[in-house]
Amino acid sequence: MHRTLITWLQAAPLTVILLGFLVAPIIMIVIVSFWGATEFSIYPDFQFENYQFLFNSPVTYKVFFATFKYAFITWAFTLAIGFTVAYFLAFHVRSQTTQIALFLLCTIPFWTSNIIRMISWIPFLGRNGIANQTLMSWGVIDAPLDWLLYSDFSVILAFVHLYTLFMVVPIFNTMMRIDKSLLEAARDAGASGFQTLCHLIIPLTKPGIMIGTIFVVTLVMGDFITVRFMSGSQKANVGRLISNDIALLQYPSAAATAVVLLCTVLIMIAIMLRFVNIRKEL
């Protein structure tokens, strides 16, 4: 009895925070999603109007589609880049000190500000930015490209820039746990480098890929600030739909959209968690 009490006390701070700032807010959002709103206030009610409006509006479907599109393209790029980088670090760098140093070099940007990292693309991508100037001086293009900044291109570029880290770290982590003697055995048995990669390394790295996927997909699905900033408010995703409603004080309708988004994300995560045991893989 005494022991159980201590265990519960140890778990208490986490539990209290999660109950107060995760569970309660979700419950509140679900409740408010049934409320009504006037132009300047919200009032308790039990109506399905917010959901009706949401599901009957063609904008909703378009915006959800755009959100999935961002998530999928970003996922594909972060996975390809993240896997290659992790593979290089884990199997081609021989000294452990170099390995740690290069790994830190990859993770340091994670600890700096996302907003500044977004801002830092402006001198690159703008109409008179470095990219356009370079391409024009090389004679590749005659007029500056307009679609470099404030477009789907810049949004996805920023996502890949911000979130590839979330792929590199878990994939590198699982790769480091692969028993090196397996690689030797594969080579002794006559496998080519490519065969070792396909039949040994990729299958054994799947848990890391899954964890990275969970992070990247959820970060992109829930984002509103990258899309707003990098598209110059010209593109929309679900997060922006919610934040626009919030700005207009339409909390019930924001809450309804939030509930739908949350369900979508949780269903996706539940499916992905079937393929990986997070606690074991860390």
């Binding site: 807010p25 959820t218 829930g222 997060g239 919610i242 919030i246 939030a258 988004l261 949780l266």
Partner: peptide
């Protein structure tokens, strides 16, 4: 994994 804006809103 919850979208951050939900925490903010809630």
């Amino acid at each position: 994994v919850i979208p951050s804006i939900l925490i903010s809103l809630g």
